[in-house]
Amino acid sequence: MADFDLKKENDAEGGEEVYSKAVRAGRRTYFFDVKATRNDDYFLTITESRKKLGKDGNFFFDKHKIYLYKEDFAKFADGLDEVVNFIKEHKPEFFAGQQDGELPGETLSVDDEFEKL
């Protein structure tokens, strides 16, 4: 039954998972998933996931997802690079103790990330 649910989710997103990277950053986890269409074009989904406490006392995950398509990769990367460089220039203390290009937080494999949940 779990395989069916996974397949259904992949079909709903329109692609087969090719590569995945989970980045733990404080209270948030970011998932970068490269997927392939039936025509073997790649697209990227970026998911922000935060564990929250519901009114009923149970935990749930609040997720936000962005789909990024091949025709937008370069412009997206340029825009992200520009705003990160702006922040580095105006608030360098935000990047103290980090290597260039490294995101804050612990980088984990997707399997390790799900094990922690």
Rank of each mutant, 00 (worst) to 15 (best):
E113P: 00
L108W: 03
A96L: 02
D111E: 15
E102N: 04
D78T: 03
V84M: 09
F94E: 00
K55L: 07
R50A: 10
N39P: 00
H90C: 02
G101I: 08
L68Y: 04
K8W: 10
K91N: 03
F61I: 14
F4E: 15
Y67F: 15
T45K: 08
K7R: 12
F95W: 00
F73H: 12
D11L: 15
A74T: 14
K7Y: 08
E106C: 01
D112F: 05
D3R: 05
A77C: 08
K35N: 06
D5F: 06
P104D: 08
K116H: 08
R38I: 01
F60P: 15
D100Q: 04
G57E: 06
I46E: 03
A25T: 15
K35V: 00
R38E: 14
F94G: 00
E9R: 05
K8L: 11
T37P: 02
F4L: 14
D100S: 03
F32H: 05
G14C: 06
A12P: 01
Q98M: 11
D40N: 15
D78A: 12
L108H: 06
L44A: 04
D40A: 13
N10K: 05
A77I: 07
F32C: 08
F94I: 01
N10F: 09
E89A: 05
A25N: 15
N85R: 09
L6A: 11
D100G: 02
S49A: 14
I87D: 04
D81Q: 13
Q99Y: 07
F43T: 01
E82V: 03
T37R: 09
F32A: 11
K21W: 03
L108Q: 11
P92M: 09
K52A: 10
T45Q: 09
L80T: 10
N39H: 09
A96G: 04
T47A: 01
P104T: 02
D56G: 05
M1L: 10
F86A: 14
P104W: 09
A96H: 08
V23Y: 04
V110E: 11
K52H: 09
